[in-house]
């Protein structure tokens, strides 16, 4: 398998993995927490029929939404009405591409060991890419509100977009401080910095708080749910949507939440000590953990970073920031 095909196959595998984990595994949990979890807090049952403890409620919801009749009102602007859910869904899915989800792996396939970074696209404008696409996500909400030809939708759309624009600024500044200390706009660079220094939550605690609040506003969650405002605006900008399109708004919102949470965690509290490798800053002995890797049969012993302390080959693989932790000292930029 040549290098080019390996890169493409690796990218596809990573994308499928992200979709499987984020959308198929995390999203139902979020829906459960919002409905059943909130029900437990509020001393009421919540959905408890579909699976054990109502865990498969999200699956039932999605199936229902796909099967429902799609009602399109008569006086809507057809092109914009049909386009808006896709525009809302797009940033939610695309933002996952620059968030790293693990330390780089060394994969051996057919005798050739390749270094696979566990990030779909390591662009050198990492955080700006995320800001760019969340700015484009405004259009979905505004167009949904406008195209529905409905006063409540219009108000909901305008309110939501005004809110998102306002909090983009705070989010940008709070995120920028974490990237300033790391010296690069790439998310893996921030993780590396945190790995060799300290989690960004600790020195920049108020920045973290502001970031968190701004992310609540960006994703239209309570108490910033001016967009939906179930008590005030019928259903806000997605009043006139039903079935599959509403399902896309619904899933897009939760995917956005997951991506934004991933961003917050990556920039402020990422990177525990990688298993089996000494920390480059402190030089303390590595913790030998009984690790199992996902690619146990195809993994190779860690290549450069472990300096001889890695366990025997073949049984475990140590996840190191191989090649980088050894060549970059904390003092170099």
């Amino acid at each position: 398998m040549s290098d080019a095909t390996f890169t493409i196959v690796a990218a596809i595998v990573k994308i499928l993995l992200i979709w499987a984990i984020a959308l198929a595994a995390l999203l139902p949990n979020l829906v459960w927490a919002e409905r059943r979890g909130a029900g437990m807090i509020q001393d009421r049952p919540g959905p408890n029929r579909v699976g054990p403890f109502g865990l498969f409620q999200a699956v039932a919801d999605v199936i229902k939404l796909f099967m429902k009749e799609d009602v399109t009102p008569t006086y809507v602007d057809k092109l914009l009405y049909n386009l808006a859910p896709w525009i809302t869904m797009m940033p939610a899915l695309v933002t996952f591409a620059v968030i790293p989800f693990g330390a780089p792996l060394d994969v051996t396939l057919g005798g050739v060991t390749r270094h696979v970074p566990l990030i779909i696209a390591d662009v050198n404008i990492g955080i700006l890419y995320i800001f760019a696409f969340s700015s484009l996500g405004i259009y979905g909400i505004v167009l949904a509100g406008w195209a529905s030809n409905n006063k409540y939708s219009m108000m909901g759309g305008l309110r939501a977009s005004a809110q998102i624009i306002s909090y983009e600024l705070s989010m940008g500044f709070a995120a920028a401080s974490t990237f300033l200390v790391a010296g690069s706009l790439r998310l893996p660079a921030v993780v590396e910095w945190q790995q060799s220094h300290v989690w960004n939550v600790v020195p920049q605690f108020f920045g973290f708080l502001i970031f968190l609040i701004a992310v609540f506003a960006e994703t239209n969650r309570l108490p910033f749910d001016l967009a939906e405002a179930e008590a005030e605006l019928v259903a806000g900008f997605h009043t006139e949507y039903s079935a599959f399109k509403f399902g896309m708004f619904f899933m897009g919102e939760y995917a956005n939440i997951i991506a934004a949470s991933g961003l917050v965690v990556t920039s402020t509290s990422a990177a525990g000590r990688s298993r089996g490798s000494p920390s480059p800053a402190s030089g303390e002995p590595s913790r030998r953990s009984p690790s199992s890797s996902r690619r146990r049969s195809r993994s190779s012993p860690s290549s450069s970073g472990s300096a001889g302390r890695s366990p025997a080959s073949g049984t475990t693989s140590s996840w190191t920031w191989a090649g980088r932790s050894s060549s970059r000292s904390p003092s170099s930029t």
Partner: peptide, 26 residues
Amino acid sequence: APFIAALQVIVYAGAILVLFLFVVML
């Protein structure tokens, strides 16, 4: 010029044109 590309989307497509859209809608 990836930086300029990101700036173009953030500033132009994501802020200036949203301003245009607001004016049109309001």
